[in-house]
Write a protein that binds this DNA or RNA. Structure first.
Length: 194
DNA sequence: TAGTTGATCGTCT
DNA sequence: GACGATCAACTAA
């Protein structure tokens, strides 16, 4: 299996393109000397200044500072008092856009994911939601700001998912900007949420 | 199976 | 002081 890290320029593309192109890629997490690998099957795009639903809509704050970094960083935020969600920052420095990773299909290190989630290894509940997958991959506040070109967390090249197999819909849990169909997922994949 | 609710806290107003 | 880019457990039917 080739393990070619996505180059910086991948993340500098327009956000909607990065979102679609991330589908099918492998997310790799080095944890406790082990390797966790998941295939990205569901994402949502958040586009800073033109997107009322985005954390970055009202400009840069202490919380969303990472979203304004150069593409290829990881923005992890805490919500609802108990959950973490991970975003891939896109575009060049100074632009607050990102792609939320919503679901992955476990590929490697499934036993460790199951232990992190305290679920059976065959459970679909392992990684089929943004907070679930973060827990499975051991991603929390410490991982906020991680450079995806480093060794702790990165994404490797895979064949592109054909456009015909990509579905799109409204984003989940959003009230404003509902008309924007910026959620993308692999059609028919069991690990896609909802 | 659909609908409701509790947990729980950082961030912004 | 209010409110989430949520989830899971619970209820009713």
């Amino acid at each position: 299996m080739p393990l070619k890290k996505l180059p910086r320029v991948f993340y500098l593309q327009p956000t909607l393109q990065v979102a679609r192109n991330l589908l099918g890629k492998f997310l790799v997490r080095r944890l406790k000397g082990r390797l966790l690998v998941g295939k990205i099957v569901e994402v949502e795009a958040y586009r800073g200044s033109i997107d009322p639903a985005s954390h970055a809509y009202r400009g840069k704050t202490k919380r969303n500072e990472v979203m304004f970094r150069e593409g290829g960083h990881l923005y992890v935020y805490f919500t609802y008092g108990m959950h973490f969600c991970a975003n891939v920052v896109t575009r060049e420095q100074g632009i607050g856009e990102a792609v939320l990773l919503r679901a992955v299909e476990p590929v490697k290190g499934i036993d460790l994911m199951a232990r992190n989630r305290r679920k059976g290894a065959s459970s679909k509940e392992l990684t089929n939601g943004p907070a679930k997958f973060c827990q499975a991959f051991g991603i929390a506040r410490k991982e906020n700001g991680t450079d995806l070109l480093g060794d702790a967390i990165f994404i490797v090249e895979r064949n592109k998912i054909p456009r015909s197999r990509i579905g799109s819909s409204e984003r989940v849990g959003i009230n404003s900007a509902k008309e924007k169909k910026w959620r993308f997922f692999v059609k028919g994949n069991d690990w896609v949420s909802r």
